[in-house]
Structure formats: C-alpha cells, structure tokens
Simulated assay, not measured.
Amino acid sequence: MKSVLAALLSLTLISPAHAEEISADALDHITGDIVVLGEIHDNPTHHLNQARAVAAIKPKAVVFEMLSPEQAAKITPALLQDEKALDQALGWEQAGWPDFAIYYPIFKALGAARIYGAAEPRDVVRSAMTTPLPEVFGPDAARYGLDQPYPDALQKQLEAEAQEDHCNALPVKLLPGMVAAQRYRDAAFARTVQQAYKDTGGPVVLIAGSGHARTDRAVPALLRKLDPDAKIVSIGQIETAPDAPASPDQPFDDWIVTPPTPRDDPCAAFK
C-alpha cells in the first residue's frame, strides 16, 4: 500500500489551480467538511477573520492549536460569555500565547460547537525533537507518514526555513529536531481533527498557525490522504506591507493578505 509520506511527496509544492487570494468577505461563504483556518498568532485581524468564518460555517466542532484537551474540557457555555473568566480558567497568559483579547472573538463565535484541544504537552513535543517519531506518536504513526524520513532535499529546505524563522541564530544541530517537532505537531493536529469529525460528523474547523494550514505537507495534506472523500478546505492568512505587490501563489486553497501587525523586532532576543 502506498504510504502517506509517498503520497504527500507526489503532491506539487504549489497551490491547486483554483487557489487565489480572497477578501475577508469570502469567509461568509466558506463550506467544507473540514476547514483549516490559518493565522499569524499575534495579528488581531486574522482572529477577526477566523471568527467571521466560524460564524458563517456554524461548525459542529472547533479544534484549537492553542488548547490542550484538559483546557478544552474546562470550557462551559457560561465561561464562553465571560472573557475574563475564560481567560483565567484556561491559564492563557501562562501558556505564552498572545493577548487573549484578540482570540476571544473566535470563542464568542463558537455557538454550540464542541471544543477540542490539539496542543501536545511540551515535554512530548521536545521529545519528538530527539526521539524517533513513531515512538513518540504511537501505533498510528505510519498512517501519518511519520515512519519515513523526508527526502534529503526537502529536509534541508525545511531546516533552512527553520533557521531563517529563528533569525539564523540556532545551532545547526537543533535544526533536524525543529523539523521533526513540526511534523509531529501537524500529525497530532490532524489526528485530533479526524477524531472531532468522527465524533460529530462535521463540519469541523481547525484554528492553527498558517504553517499548519499548508496544503503541500501540513494538516490539510495529511487529512486529504487519510480521508479522500471529505471536503478539506484550507484558508491561509499572511502579511505583506500595504504597498507591496500582489502576493504570489501560496500553499493554501485560498488565502487572505493583511498588513503586518505592529510588533517588536523578533530577532532582538537573539542579539
């Protein structure tokens, strides 16, 4: 049987023919069995767009990258109505995510959706950096392609991207582990989404960083190979300066381009 990894590697590394940049207005009409809504974590506009999409989709379940299963289990209808109490119950600030206030519109839009947490324990993610992924992920690892290494060219490409994302400040010996951790988290998110879809029949929404929304090798790619009959839709969100030229093709079904949110120099900590 063709492995998931082999199937993923047969995909082209460009967007499907129908893919295009869309406006936020298009979020009012998104449909799918599973919809992956990407974000840049600290961009408030991205979360407003996600909330708009959730309100339109009216999903049976919403899976959050930011929540553990234990955190998700704490959420009640009453807590969803109280921003401050929900923030405190989740321990959001302690988890290191950007200000809860910019995420709260998503929670307000959930309606009766069942909430799932896809975050893996930090010690488990760290172990994925140094331990063979099948040992960390468990008996389903082969279904998610984790029993096979990436081809050398792709591995080197991803290591270079990880280094760039960390201001070219990481020791080279850490780069393979960074790639492995991202693979592990993609597979873990896909597994939780599949469980939510099985439990509720969909539609299911995944709220996650745009890197996890890539259709070439991340969560949507895994889901499409595992369940070819399900309609999987990936919406990425990226930033560009207002006067920049139109964005080139992106690795999503469709994508939204927003101005960058003001932020401190992310490389300052490495200097």
Rank of each mutant, 00 (worst) to 15 (best):
A26Q: 14
A141S: 06
L154G: 09
Y103Q: 01
A160C: 08
H166A: 14
T215G: 13
L146E: 14
H46T: 01
P248F: 04
A78D: 15
E135A: 14
T76L: 06
Y197R: 13
K173W: 07
H212A: 06
A241S: 03
Q94A: 15
D243I: 00
A72D: 08
T45N: 09
A268G: 04
A188S: 15
F252A: 03
D186M: 08
T12Q: 15
W255H: 12
L86C: 07
D123L: 10
I238T: 12
L13N: 13
C267T: 13
A19V: 06
A142K: 14
T240M: 08
L13M: 11
E239C: 01
V125D: 01
P16E: 06
G96C: 05
A128N: 05
P171F: 10
Q88E: 15
D186I: 04
A169D: 04
A119N: 13
L48M: 06
D186N: 15
K271F: 03
A119R: 13
L175G: 08
A153E: 15
L48C: 04
P69C: 09
N43T: 09
I75Y: 11
G177H: 03
L80V: 00
A89F: 04
G145D: 04
Q157F: 11
P242I: 00
A169Y: 01
A101D: 12
D216M: 09
V136Y: 07
